[in-house]
Design a protein around this nucleic acid. Structure first.
Length: 205
DNA sequence: CCCTGATTCGC
DNA sequence: GCGAATCAGG
């Protein structure tokens, strides 16, 4: 394969769109990501920055790193279940808040350690780590525009399996962005999928 | 381990 | 000019 005008054009376009070298290589076919990167450099469009102007804020970072995790105070990471298959899952659509939530079921018989709350209310929402952070939501909306819109069959172990759209229509796909390590979703979707826990849920008897 | 781009250097 | 190998990160 050689760098025909057409292929170079595709390269430029995709690179400008913020696509990764490997994605571009995959799209073009017949080339590796190394070839793409090499070409990118030779074309001199590695970083679209020339006038000493810096871009400290990094407005449109192709990498998804904004994942503010409130760090659950006393929640040892809820593990819904290791289902590898596409879960029936949440249905975000736009700003909905799915709740995979795994209730730890706090039994009064707990023989845990020190933080034995007095009596009455088990755990007043002190940290108030509930609710999805607005930034996580914003991140989700942002990332869904950039979704790869994969079909069910195109999903792999490392693509985000967050459903977008209505399954009943043809306007439905999966996020498809690189999933977080060992997780079913990309960083942005992990942020809204795994919440510490809903409010409280006392059920004494 | 998966991925990213950056650089080198024989071809 | 090309791109595999390698490097340096996340």
């Amino acid at each position: 394969m050689s760098w025909t005008d057409e292929r170079v054009e595709t390269l430029k376009r995709m690179w400008a769109e913020g696509q990764s070298a490997s994605q571009i290589a995959k799209e073009l076919g017949g080339v590796t990501r190394n070839a793409v990167i090499g070409k990118v450099h030779r074309l001199g469009l590695s970083n679209r920055n020339e006038d000493g102007t810096e871009m400290p804020a990094a407005p449109a970072a192709p990498e998804a790193k904004p994942a503010p995790q409130p760090t659950a105070a006393a929640a040892p990471a809820p593990q819904p279940k290791p289902t590898p298959a596409p879960e029936p899952a949440p249905k975000p659509a736009a700003a909905a808040a799915p709740q995979p939530e795994a209730a730890p079921a706090p039994q009064p018989v707990n023989f845990n350690r020190r933080p034995i709350v007095p009596a009455g209310q088990p755990l007043p929402p002190q940290p108030s780590a509930n609710e999805i952070s607005p930034e996580a939501l914003a991140s989700v909306r942002e990332v869904e525009k950039r979704a790869r819109k994969l079909s069910l069959m195109e999903l792999t172990e490392r693509t985000c399996k967050w459903p977008i759209g209505d399954p009943a229509t043809d306007k439905f796909w999966f996020c498809g962005l690189p999933s977080a390590a060992g997780k079913p979703y990309c960083e942005a979707h992990v942020g809204v999928a795994f919440q510490p826990m809903s409010s409280r849920r006392d059920r004494r008897r």
